[in-house]
């Protein structure tokens, strides 16, 4: 192998083959997906996200939640994701079309969140968790997102948005309250929107065993 041109050609061919498979193919075949019409409601599948949830995606990205939480349900029978009720069916490319970047995640340091909105609906509980994870699960190593909350003196009436149920060392001092910022509201909106319980033809729910 003494000729530079020969070497170059070889590199272009081997490297290029993977480029065609993993770059050109998805660009041509996966990058133009449309939501499907929902015959029952007349809406779209996957449903369009609210403005709040879209804002929440940015907070999710900025906080680095993806470092600890995956968002992908893998299929039966290879894995037990479905048996463990992370979701009812496999996550497929069309599930991601509303995201700017897919938050697939590489680790499950915390639980998978693909269908978090299907198992949790209580806004106040989610705020409590984000503000003080160890209050909800004392064994948790999730960081506190207290910087997304405002700790302030109550002036006049306490805010109706203030977090309730903060106890022990997490409770604010008397006369103070913890109020979610807009970012925290958006993040919770996004988390509650995470729900893949809509039917997609390319990902049927496995039939019950």
């Amino acid at each position: 192998m003494n000729k530079l041109t020969l070497l170059f050609t070889g590199i272009v061919l081997t490297f290029g083959s993977a480029w065609v498979g993993f770059v050109a193919y998805p660009v041509a075949n996966l990058a133009n997906m449309e939501p499907l019409p929902d015959e029952e409601t007349g809406g779209l599948i996957p449903p369009t996200l609210s403005g709040l949830a879209v804002a929440g995606q940015k907070v999710y990205a900025a906080s680095g939640c993806v470092e600890c939480h995956s968002q992908q349900v893998r299929p039966d029978p290879l894995t037990t994701d479905i048996a463990k009720q992370l979701g009812k069916r496999q996550t497929v490319p069309r599930d991601e079309i509303r995201e700017h970047t897919p938050f697939l995640g590489e680790y499950r340091i915390g639980q998978d969140l693909s269908n978090y909105g299907a198992r949790e609906t209580d806004v106040a509980a989610v705020h409590r968790h984000l503000y003080s994870p160890q209050l909800v699960s004392p064994w948790s190593n999730m960081p506190s997102y207290s910087y997304l909350y405002q700790y302030r003196k109550i002036v006049g009436q306490p805010s109706s948005h203030a977090l309730q149920g903060l106890t022990g060392s997490f409770a604010p001092k008397a006369g103070y309250e913890v109020v979610p910022t807009q970012q925290a509201e958006a993040l919770v909106g996004y988390l509650l929107s995470l729900n893949q319980n809509y039917p997609l033809p390319e990902s049927p729910e496995p039939t019950a065993k």
Binding site: F22, L30, A31, M33, E96, H100, T101, P102
Partner: peptide, 14 residues
């Protein structure tokens, strides 16, 4: 100029 998220994961893995 991100392409649609549905096509991003193989490229990121590559």
């Amino acid at each position: 100029n991100p392409i649609q998220a549905s096509a991003q994961s193989p490229i990121a893995a590559w």
